[in-house]
Write a protein that binds this DNA or RNA. Structure first.
Lengths: 116, 116
DNA sequence: TCCATATATATGGTATATCGTATATTCAAG
DNA sequence: CTTGAATATACGATATACCATATATATGGA
């Protein structure tokens, strides 16, 4: 699945985007990825203290919505914002992260060190 | 219920905000209100072509989340962005409306004329 | 080839959201 | 104080979302 870099799986609308943000795991993952540029599944597992299937499932959903891009490097899969993600969506994520330093603050601590 | 102008019904977090945007009726209502400043229930019924209980229910949810403020004037209830809505949230709405002119375009047509 | 690690997905149960319909509330006018 | 218009809410039924568990896939190294 990684590396196919599919584009325009369907219409990327504001509604699709905000539905993707309407879950704690997905929102925190996106804000962290938006800040850090790229994170792998195990980074997010450690940061958010959630199970592997849970993280993976939500990342898959974000990938299928066209928000994230996955890149496999060896055994690891790294996720970053999709290059074709509209600028307004990128700005929304950046704005949200900047203006809400407390939200996802605990997660940010764990991100500094790589887990695996 | 109108006119109580309650504040801080609970923590207003990014997650609460984006959950509120994760529904077509609520998102379109918010973008229209963000553009127009203030709209009443029947304006939104006409704009979105949805039933009265449906519109009313979603507006109530937005009010309870602290996103909208309601103001009764005679038989009509007008909704606007809550004065205490954080600036970043306001910017998100404005940005989304500006950068997605097509979304909610049909609704915008109907808004020009008042319904009742 | 066999094993361990990282990641993905399938499945079924549970919780949450949304809806249509019916009913209640509020206000203005008579 | 009744009536009609605008809005709000209650109630079931249905749909959707989320989760934990189990299993599958892919990669690298022995």
């Amino acid at each position: 699945m990684a590396g196919q870099n599919k584009i325009s799986e369907s219409a990327f609308t504001p509604l699709v985007f905000y539905k993707a943000l309407a879950d704690d795991t997905r929102l925190q993952s996106l804000l962290l990825i938006s800040e850090q540029g790229e994170l792998c599944v195990c980074d997010l597992m450690a940061a958010l203290q959630q199970s592997q299937p849970k993280i993976s499932r939500h990342l898959a959903q974000l990938r299928k919505s066209g928000i994230l891009l996955d890149r496999r490097q060896g055994q690891w899969v790294y996720y970053s914002l999709h290059p074709q993600l509209p600028d307004w969506a990128r700005q929304v994520l950046a704005l949200t992260a900047e203006q809400n330093p407390d939200y996802a603050a605990r997660a940010r601590q764990y991100v500094t060190t790589h887990c695996c």
